[in-house]
């Protein structure tokens, strides 16, 4: 049977210097911890990261920032990672902030092939450059470009060998959105089962969006 299961090392083959990398997780919940470690271990530099927060200095996606592997970060807040704030101040890390709901919707748009979204112009944490407001549907709106990435890393509870994914409770968060918005999607899962064993009605991310699967705690990076 064909299977997308690979080792951690094989999975991160496509993460190179300068790769645009999108990640699921909210804080540490639903963060693909093994894949982050594998990327760290590989030693790639100058990454562009796209995710809802900057994790913590020593936990989650924040590790890549702490180790100086990240050049650019597109996110909604970095409050839990003072290291990211420090690097931003020193000019080592370029940070772009976006309100959280708009951020999620930009990734959703990226995942379904829509080039941008129309949002209420007044909802913004900071001035949006090049986003001219216009009247639409009786509201003052602006366009926000969709977000996509070269590689996406997500965490799920279960996968089947085809890559269909089922998530767990609040560990879902950005994961199903990220899974669809990357050219190459890698899923870190607790368990992989043969295709046919997951109830098609329960699948959240169809396997067509998933390229590689690694099992958490299984296989060395």
């Amino acid at each position: 049977m064909l299977s997308k299961l690979v080792t951690h090392e094989q999975a991160v083959e496509h993460v190179l210097d300068g790769t645009r990398l999108m990640y699921g997780g909210f804080g540490t919940i639903g963060s693909p911890a093994n894949l982050i470690d594998a990327i760290l271990h590989k030693g790639v530099q100058s990454l562009t990261l796209i995710g809802i927060d900057a994790g913590y200095p020593k936990v989650g996606i924040g590790k890549l920032i702490s180790h100086g592997r990240v050049r650019q970060l597109i996110t909604t807040h970095i409050g839990s990672n003072p290291e990211a704030g420090q690097q931003m101040m020193e000019g080592k890390l370029e940070v772009t902030f976006c309100p959280q709901g708009i951020f999620a919707e930009k990734i959703r748009a990226g995942g379904v092939g829509i080039p941008g979204i129309v949002v209420d112009a007044h909802v913004s944490g900071e001035r949006m450059e090049g986003a001219e407001p216009f009247a639409f549907d009786g509201r003052t709106c602006r366009i926000e470009a969709a977000l996509s990435a070269e590689v996406g890393i997500v965490y799920a509870k279960q996968a089947d060998t085809y890559g269909n994914l089922i998530y767990d409770k609040a560990a879902r968060n950005l994961n199903p959105l990220v899974a669809m918005a990357a050219d190459i999607t890698i899923a870190e899962v607790e368990e992989i089962v043969p295709a046919g064993e997951l109830d098609p009605d329960k699948i959240v991310t169809p396997g067509i969006f998933v390229d590689y699967i690694v099992v958490r705690g299984g296989g060395n990076s």
């Binding site: 704030g85 420090q86 101040m89 940070v95 309100p99 959280q100 909802v123």
Partner: peptide, 14 residues
């Protein structure tokens, strides 16, 4: 203090 980013604050408020 440093700028942390607005998170979801503006959307909840509006």
């Amino acid at each position: 203090s440093r700028v942390h980013g607005i998170g979801g604050g503006a959307e909840l408020a509006y």
